[in-house]
Amino acid sequence: MRFAPLVLTLALLVFAADAALARGPLDALDASDATASLTPEALAKLRDRLAQDVGRPPDEIRASATPGLLEAQWGGLFAYVTADGRYVVYGDMVDLSNGNELTEARRRSDRLAAINRLGVENMIEYTPTPPAPSRYVVTVFTDIDCGYCRQLHRDIDDYNARGIAIRYVFYPRTGPDTESFKKAVAVWCSSNHKLAFTRAAAGAPLIGNPQCANPIQREYELGLSFGIRGTPLLVLPNGAAVSGYLPPDVLLTRLNQMQAASGSKN
């Protein structure tokens, strides 16, 4: 697979793909107008060429914001390709006229949509005590055996006191059939999710039924699709992903900046 761990910025650079991707034009397409509708045959050929280069076909191919280029997406990974399949660049697109991160904006939208599909009923939520309002809601991918995740939870009252609601989604980094995964299942299968989570985060043993219908595998796979490499991972209300622990005041500052930036664009 040709995706590098570093994200490339696409501004004015387009480079040729390897020979597997550049074996000739797609006759059904005009490369000068990549936003034109693709025939099913042309789309299939383009998907096949990208699959040869990456190792699997893209999840979606669509028009991009740049004339002459299509956007191909594999989860959180993106490429921009000419409609004839001859040239491709892997990475992110930025509008240099205004600094807008076009690819990252789509990632953020995708994250929020996926979290909404998961549903709050499949999360463990800690909210400010009424009548204090929740000014912000932050989704946290967490691992019970992660030290910084435990630190974040020790501060849960301080987050709530600042108007920040925390919704936990499980991402046991060691994967299925491991102790961390089993602990997550045990928390979910307890009669009181919040109490069990707090006990587990403090290192206390969990007592109760370790098996029940639960969303842990689904949440773990969601984390994989987000490309999570460590926990905690915080997803902010605008879809931005922040890796690592942020103290309550630092997170509040970040959220206020996010809100101010959003207001300045309206």
Results as ranks from 00 to 15, higher is better:
Met1Lys: 13
Met1Ile: 09
Arg2Gly: 15
Ala4Asp: 15
Ala4Tyr: 10
Pro5Leu: 10
Leu6Ala: 14
Leu6Trp: 14
Leu8Thr: 09
Thr9Phe: 14
Leu13Ile: 06
Leu13Trp: 10
Val14Cys: 02
Ala19Arg: 05
Ala22Met: 00
Arg23His: 00
Arg23Val: 01
Arg23Asn: 03
Leu29Thr: 13
Ser32Asn: 10
Ala36Lys: 09
Ala36Glu: 13
Ser37Cys: 01
Ser37Tyr: 01
Glu41Asp: 14
Ala44Glu: 14
Arg47Val: 03
Arg49Lys: 14
Arg49Pro: 00
Asp53Met: 08
Pro57Met: 08
Pro58Gly: 14
Asp59Ala: 14
Ala65Val: 02
Pro67His: 07
Pro67Gly: 03
Gly68His: 01
Leu69Lys: 07
Leu70Val: 01
Gln73Asp: 03
Leu77Asp: 15
Phe78Met: 04
Tyr80His: 04
Ala83Tyr: 11
Tyr87Thr: 11
Tyr90Ile: 12
Gly91Ile: 12
Leu96Tyr: 05
Leu102Asp: 08
Glu104His: 12
Ser109Val: 01
Ala113Gly: 02
Arg117Glu: 14
Val120Gly: 10
Asn122Pro: 05
Ile124Thr: 11
Ile124Val: 15
Tyr126Glu: 11
Thr127Asp: 06
Pro128Asn: 04
Thr129Leu: 01
Ala132Asp: 01
Pro133Ile: 01
Ser134Asn: 00
Tyr136Gly: 06
Val138Pro: 09
Val138Thr: 06
Thr139Gly: 09
Val140Asp: 11
Phe141Ala: 07
Thr142Arg: 02
Cys149Lys: 05
Arg150Cys: 08
Gln151Cys: 02
Leu152Ile: 08
Asp155Cys: 03
Asp157Ala: 11
Asp158Val: 00
Asn160Met: 07
Ile164Asp: 08
Ala165Asn: 06
Tyr168Val: 00
Phe170Glu: 12
Arg173Lys: 08
Asp177Gly: 04
Thr178Leu: 06
Thr178Ser: 15
Lys182Gly: 11
Val185Thr: 15
Trp188Ile: 03
Ser190Cys: 04
Lys194His: 12
Leu195Met: 11
Phe197Leu: 15
Ala201Trp: 01
Gly203His: 12
Ala204Met: 12
Asn209Cys: 01
Pro210Gly: 04
Gln211His: 12
Gln211Cys: 02
Ala213Arg: 14
Gln217Gly: 09
Glu219Ala: 06
Glu219Tyr: 05
Tyr220Gln: 03
Gly227Val: 00
Ile228Trp: 05
Gly239Trp: 07
Ala240Leu: 06
Ala240Trp: 05
Val242Leu: 14
Ser243Ile: 10
Ser243His: 10
Gly244Asn: 06
Thr253Leu: 05
Asn256Ser: 02
Gln259Arg: 13
Ala260Pro: 04
Lys265Leu: 13
